[in-house]
Amino acid sequence: MAFPAEAEVLFRRQNVEQQYKLVFIGWLIGLFLYDLFIISDYVLTGAYFQTYVVIRLLFVTPICLVLLWGIWRKSPYYDLLVSLIPATMVVGLSTGLVLSEGDYRPHYVFGNILLMVCGCVVGRPRTQFVAVIVALQFIGYLAVLQVTDIFPADSKPVSILFYISGAVVSILTAYAAEKSVRQSFLLDQRIKYLNAALNIQALTDPLTGLANRRSFEQATGRHWANKTAARKPVAIILLDVDRFKIFNDSYGHSAGDLCLKRIAGRVVAGLAGTDGLAVRFGGEEILLFLPNTDLTSARCIAEAIRCAILDEAVPHPALGPDAVVSASFGVASATVESCEVAELIIAADAALYAAKANGRNQVWPQPGASASVEAKRA
């Protein structure tokens, strides 16, 4: 009962994180109750009382406290430590039974069975650890029966049957608990996956795979709220596919959609290695949000993408036999503290109008040209 390697590591980390405090407190209380039985030792064991005091307080308790410290620190051996606590208690109690004599001992034997079951309920170790520890405890129990006269010969099979029953209950309890926890983990991971998928859908344009306006608003909202970015440059690039309406009217919307997908792919490739965000801003218009980018760098990025779109060579026969789809670009840059997002978009849009008015298939402002040119889309 295990997940693939990566999922198993995540499950173990999450499971330990969720339960280690509860297990620590549970076994701390369990250790207190274990030592509280020193009262029954005093009443029942007579001359062997000192033996049980040594076993409980000088052997079992210190070892269990060390194991509990490892649990609290979320040791890499967490499951083993959880399994060793009840095993240590059982070994201590069994040692007392071997070193002492008296009619009280059969009652203490059933205490071992109780500890074995409690080890699964309180500690919640993995089933494989429970199976190994229970098997070792059972072997130890058979050895105790062999070297002591706790039970008469005709009663030993019954006591062994009780111990086997306790072992089976322990393993089944551990299995059921682990199965339930693993199913809860799978459900939790599925919910997280679905939420992530829904979040991606909510922030992504379904046609191009680019970010949508909601994603853009979130990104710019975070950036403008970041005080460390106040004096750093930020750029906006607006690109518009040239004569896209003619392309759509001539070849149909399916061809137009495919054209936009291919251009979007070139845009995303052009932003590789930057912190930029590509956004489908509307229709055939794409916006690029570029934090920490000045006007010169933004123009270089825009020019590289313009050339990449030409290299994509999407045919546009309506404009001529050798014509291909091109795009016009408007670029604007400023510091965060000097403008609002809307103002930067308006400046980039004005530059895009200028690129259209001055012949399309170019980046504006060009070197030496004014970025404030106002022109109507041709």
Score class of each variant (00 low, 15 high):
Glu101Lys: 14
Ser372Phe: 01
Arg243Leu: 14
Leu115Asn: 02
Ser100Gly: 06
Phe59Gly: 11
His316Asn: 08
Ala87Gly: 06
Arg73Cys: 09
Lys21His: 12
Asn292Arg: 12
Leu187Ala: 04
Arg262Gln: 13
Ile133Val: 15
Gly320Trp: 02
Phe11Ile: 09
Ala7Phe: 07
Val91Asp: 00
Arg190Asp: 04
Arg360Ser: 03
Glu17Arg: 13
Arg214Glu: 04
Arg231Thr: 06
Arg266Thr: 04
Thr296Lys: 15
Leu84Thr: 05
Asn292Met: 09
Phe281Gln: 01
Gln201Pro: 11
Ile113Val: 11
Leu203Phe: 02
Ala235His: 03
Thr45Tyr: 00
Ser165Glu: 06
Val66Ala: 07
Glu312Pro: 13
Leu207Val: 08
Val16Phe: 03
Ala269Gln: 03
Tyr52Met: 12
Leu290Val: 04
Lys179Glu: 09
Asn248His: 06
Ala174Asn: 08
Asp154His: 13
Ile38Leu: 13
Glu374Ser: 08
Val331Thr: 05
Leu194Asn: 01
Pro365Cys: 10
Gly256Cys: 10
Ala369Cys: 05
Ile301Gly: 00
Phe138Tyr: 13
Val91Gln: 00
Ile236Cys: 08
Gly123Pro: 11
Gly270Arg: 11
Tyr251Arg: 15
Ile55Leu: 14
Phe162Leu: 15
Arg306Val: 10
Leu67Glu: 02
Ile345Tyr: 02
Ser184Ile: 11
Phe244Leu: 15
Ser83Ala: 12
Gln19Arg: 14
Ser165Leu: 15
Asp249Gly: 13
Ile85Pro: 06
Gln137His: 12
Arg73Pro: 10
Arg56Ile: 10
Val267Cys: 02
Gly102Val: 04
Cys307His: 10
Asn292Gln: 09
Arg243Ile: 12
Ile29Ala: 09
Ala347Ser: 04
Asp311Leu: 15
Phe59Ser: 08
Ile150Pro: 04
Gly46His: 04
Asn112Pro: 10
Ile346Pro: 02
Thr274Phe: 05
Val169Thr: 08
Leu142Thr: 09
Phe49Tyr: 11
Lys21Phe: 11
Glu374Asp: 02
Cys300Ser: 03
Ser338Arg: 14
Ala174Asp: 07
Leu319Ala: 07
Val268Ala: 05
Asp154Ile: 15
Ala350Glu: 02
Ile133Pro: 11
Met1Gln: 06
Gln14Ser: 04
Thr204Ser: 00
Cys300Lys: 13
Ile301Ala: 00
Ser75Phe: 07
Phe289Leu: 08
Gly282Thr: 00
Val373Thr: 01
Asn248Trp: 07
Phe185His: 07
Thr274Asn: 05
Gln19Asn: 05
Arg243Thr: 10
Val122Met: 14
Ala225Leu: 15
Cys307Tyr: 04
Leu203Gly: 00
Glu6Asp: 03
Gly111Asp: 01
Ala348Ile: 11
Thr45Val: 06
Arg280Phe: 01
Ala369Glu: 00
Val9Tyr: 01
Asn248Leu: 12
His253Phe: 14
Ser372Pro: 01
Phe329Glu: 01
Leu145Glu: 02
Leu65Pro: 10
